[in-house]
Simulated assay, not measured.
Amino acid sequence: MSVFGSELYTAWSSGETSALATVVHTVGSASRPVGSCMLLTPGGRVVGSVSGGCVEGDVLERAREVILEGTCRQAVYGADDDVFGLGLTCGGTLEVFVEPVDVHRFPELAEVVESARAGIPVAVVTVLGHPRPQAVGTHVIVRADGHHSSSYPRIPEPEFIVDARNLMLSGASGVLTYDATGTRVFVHSLIPQPRMVLFGACDFAAALATIGRTLDYRVTVCDARPLFTTPDRFPDADEVVVARPDDYLAQEAAAGRIDQRTAVVSLSHDPKFDIPLLRTALGLDMAFVGALGSRATHERRVEALRDAGMPDAALARLSSPVGLDLGGRSPAETAVSIAAEIIMARYGGRGGALSHRAGPVHLPQLVRERR
């Protein structure tokens, strides 16, 4: 839910004014992605980050001015901005929008928080530029069903509602620009956490659950053995479920709780659970399917899946033995290796050491512009 959680809502509910700084656009190797936020509360606390430290001081000053004056500010920081040491050491460019937030200027916030807490996708569309200056900083709330709401009804560009919804459904945030009308908006997509479902109640699952939670996945550990599958063994898992792995995954998929962002990892080493689970998982549309084991185990696993009728195209989606080649052996080291491969699959990385290749550190951010 990003910064649209308890901190912002608590500050908003106080009736006083906060300042919210949001990264709305990046170019090159910016240190923080689009959608990163920093909040200055009425009590003077700072929550979050927009640059990892490079320009936070200047953004904080702008935030204080925003609270005092009640007006929005925009700033662009680049590697060549050497005045007062405000340049980005990462070499990229960062555009930050700073706005006052209170019950009068952002009355839609309660709706946003309620939707996000309920796991309902929602997008906050903030007007960055508009022919009418009073429209800058106003918000339109767009939901997945296409409905939208705004306290500023005179924004005349309904086409950006459709564009914002499409951007949200793709899981991305970004800027939409409409040159014909002089309108520029930022779409901040707030979607439910992606799921990481771990099958096999073992030390590797416990270590991976901890990392998965850090990576903002909603983590489930599932195993058919009740003696081993207890919440106290997996304190960082959001859910601990006693069930046959293949049955549980099929039920979750039928209920619509498995999607294209879901990562599934089998850690059981038990063919009677492993093979039915992987048959089910490889028949679903999800981001990642991995299985722990040696190369000999992998060969037996693939042979069993082929014998069960699994086509080669589906088997090609299986990451087995799962994990990047980092050389570690302990459960914690193995969990890092598996998490690294999940991240690589999610963002299209290449897995090599950054020091061994040329080019930008970060892959390009998704930015949509309509002209």
Rank of each mutant, 00 (worst) to 15 (best):
S51Q: 02
R371T: 13
S6M: 11
L284I: 04
G52T: 03
V187M: 06
V240Q: 00
G200F: 01
T183N: 11
S189H: 02
V98L: 04
T229A: 05
D259L: 04
P271K: 05
L40N: 03
A314I: 08
T26N: 08
P311D: 04
R244Y: 15
M344V: 11
R184E: 14
E252N: 09
L363W: 08
T177N: 15
V122S: 05
T126C: 07
Y347V: 14
P153M: 07
E61M: 15
S149H: 12
G349Y: 02
Y152I: 05
P192R: 06
D179W: 12
Y152C: 13
V162Y: 13
R117H: 13
D325S: 15
S355C: 13
G290S: 04
S115G: 10
P42K: 03
Q251H: 13
A118D: 10
F199C: 08
L278P: 01
S36L: 02
S149C: 10
S355V: 14
V197A: 10
I191M: 14
A116D: 06
R301L: 08
V242R: 07
V336N: 00
E114W: 10
E95D: 13
L20C: 00
M310G: 08
C37E: 11
V27Y: 14
S31I: 05
P33W: 01
A314V: 09
S51A: 07
V96D: 00
L363E: 10
F199W: 07
R195E: 12
S170F: 06
V46M: 08
R295Y: 10
T93E: 15
V50M: 01
A313N: 13
R301I: 09
V322M: 04
T280C: 12
S189E: 02
V264G: 02
R261D: 12
A353H: 15
P331R: 00
P131S: 07
G323H: 02
M38K: 03
H104M: 14
V264P: 01
F186R: 00
L305W: 03
R225D: 06
C72Q: 09
E65P: 03
V302P: 09
V162F: 15
G359Y: 03
P192M: 02
P33Q: 02
C90V: 04
I67R: 14
R257M: 10
I343D: 08
